[in-house]
Design a protein around this nucleic acid. Structure first.
Lengths: 140, 140
DNA sequence: CAATAATCGCAACATTGTTGCATTTATTTG
DNA sequence: CAAATAAATGCAACAATGTTGCGATTATTG
């Protein structure tokens, strides 16, 4: 089921001048297959038995993927980063939704907030991080 | 300098049916005196030598203050909660600004975002968490 | 001032994430 | 294809934030 994503993942990695490691491919494939932003822990659980990676390796692979802009990470209130593959759908800046029931995080593709914020004088705007919280359909 | 806040702090605590512990008063006074949202660690550092508190006590006091709605806490991307006293200025929902240079966090009192979000069908809105990132006047 | 329920502090643990370094491996080169 | 090498990995050890259980202390009440 993930197989169709492995090829894509490998391509994306090679196009960025990185080594097509089994681990990296697997991780990216997992993220490509996922509809929501998932944690380090969840990625670990989705890795095939035969291909468990060291925690450190996973962190470093994710770091590399973020650097190369193949995935992005989302801040949450539970002190854990969540990762999601960068699909064309996502504009560079987009909001996230987090279910307060099951902690699921999905991307909201439209960020209808202008970057024009009433900041104090002398402050410079860089980016927005917006999380809408609520209950998902399952938890309602 | 903090003295004027101690009385206020004690009042706020008593009005909520809690014990006016030296620690709680001190913590709340510190947060009342502070213009920005600060971390557990920063609160610790501002505590007078003679009145250092156990980390656990501090966490529990903060938890209590949040529960009683005397302070609020802010998610950040560095895995550390930041706390700020609830002043009348702050509407219940407000945005925060975080400086990517010095990690300072301040409250932006206006949240010009409607609570009316285009969530997927069946999803229920609860609240918004919005952080604007950029550089503060000092770091520009 | 004594009773008691709330608060505190210690020890121990959980989770997430990071660093240094020696080993392994994907890719390049001859 | 084999050797060279730069990149990626895995281990051990650590750091920071936060939590839990429980016995000791203390603010408040009567």
């Amino acid at each position: 089921m993930l197989n169709q994503f492995h090829h894509t993942a490998e391509d994306m990695i090679r196009h960025n001048g990185g080594r097509a490691t089994a681990g990296r491919i697997e991780i990216l494939a997992i993220l490509l297959a996922e509809q929501q932003a998932i944690t380090h822990r969840e990625i670990e659980q989705r890795l095939p038995q035969a291909q468990q990676l060291d925690r450190v390796t996973l962190y470093r692979a994710l770091e590399w993927l973020v650097e190369k802009n193949l995935i992005h990470k989302v801040t949450s209130d539970d002190r854990a980063w969540r990762y999601h593959a960068n699909r064309e759908l996502h504009s560079h800046q987009h909001a996230h939704f987090k279910c307060t029931g099951c902690a699921q995080v999905i991307c909201l593709d439209k960020l209808p907030v202008e970057a024009n914020w009433p900041l104090p004088a002398g402050y410079r705007f860089q980016e927005i991080e917006l999380t809408v919280k609520g209950l998902c359909a399952n938890c309602c």
